[in-house]
């Protein structure tokens, strides 16, 4: 049932998948809210195609880190490179057009539009003719891409329903479809499993593990069963700082981690 996702072919952007160095590189990122440092001096690099989990208790600064990477917040200090390009001060839509994607912890969709329209918009966002007044034809490449993505997240049966009417788990799946639209090169998943049933979690794992291999991602996730099964490396954060990096097995067995994180009062 899980055919590997064929990513919709890039529409507009010139593709330079072969890029020397890292997909994402953070150098000394600090974000202050007033006098409070939400994250301090985070340095992190992720290779193209690498899949990494960022773990840590609530308030460790994980979502703030995502917001800095996507450009929702400008970091107070530090440097962000995306496939070698300095994007530190770019507005969000410029980063998106370069192949960065994210999902949101709380579903952030278009409730008044249908499932297929949601995905279509996401595909449209990184293509040309965003202001076109001409309706897409049925054989339009983007319509086709959107339909493929809807299928990839197992929502074909619901594609004409309004998103506001979908069940919670289905909305989470749609979040992922939106993140896969266009030609993503790197995705940030913000707690994709939160609130999902065990069946839906299995579905999620299968979606994540069958992503095309050139797409790397960072996942924030509290459910270790999900997180450690879909990544090859783990970064632990605590109080806004990175305190450990390693492979999933190492992290799982690390006594310090177990004390700090697994005992550390998360849900």
């Amino acid at each position: 049932m899980n055919a590997p996702v064929t990513p919709p072919r890039p529409v507009a952007l010139g593709q330079s998948h072969v890029s020397a160095g890292n997909a994402l590189e953070l150098r000394g990122i600090t974000k202050m809210f007033g006098a409070l440092a939400a994250i301090s001096d985070v340095t992190l690099s992720v290779r193209p195609g690498e899949r990494r989990a960022v773990l840590g208790s609530n308030g460790a600064g994980k979502t703030t880190l995502f917001n800095c990477i996507t450009g929702d917040f400008l970091p107070t200090t530090g440097l962000i490179r995306f496939f070698g390009e300095d994007v530190t001060t770019f507005p969000p839509h410029e980063r998106i057009r370069r192949g960065l994607r994210r999902t949101y912890q709380i579903s952030s969709l278009f409730a008044g539009l249908s499932v297929i329209d949601n995905v279509y918009l996401a595909c449209r966002g990184v293509s040309r003719n965003r202001f076109s007044l001409i309706r897409p034809r049925r054989d339009d490449a983007l319509v086709h891409a959107a339909e493929t993505l809807v299928e990839a997240v197992h929502l074909t049966a619901e594609k004409d329903r309004l998103v506001g009417e979908l069940a919670y788990g289905q909305q989470r799946q749609l979040e992922i479809a939106l993140a896969l639209s266009g030609a993503p090169r790197f995705i940030l998943f913000d707690e994709p499993a939160a609130g999902l049933s065990p069946t839906e979690r299995r579905d999620l794992v299968s979606i994540l593990t069958t992503l095309p291999t050139h797409i790397g991602y960072i996942i924030i996730e509290h459910d270790m069963d999900v997180a450690l099964r879909v990544v090859e490396s783990v970064t632990m954060m605590h109080n806004g700082r990175i305190f450990k990096e390693g492979r999933p097995e190492e992290i799982e067995d690390d006594p310090e981690v177990q004390e700090l994180y697994l005992g550390g009062g998360h849900e």
């Binding site: 507005p91 969000p92 839509h93 994210r102 949101y104 952030s108 329209d117 966002g125 965003r130």
Partner: peptide, 16 residues
């Protein structure tokens, strides 16, 4: 209509 429902997300999808 996307802007109506969720302007922030539209920006995050690459729309101005």
């Amino acid at each position: 209509q996307g802007v109506r429902d969720n302007p922030r997300r539209m920006a995050a999808l690459g729309f101005n």
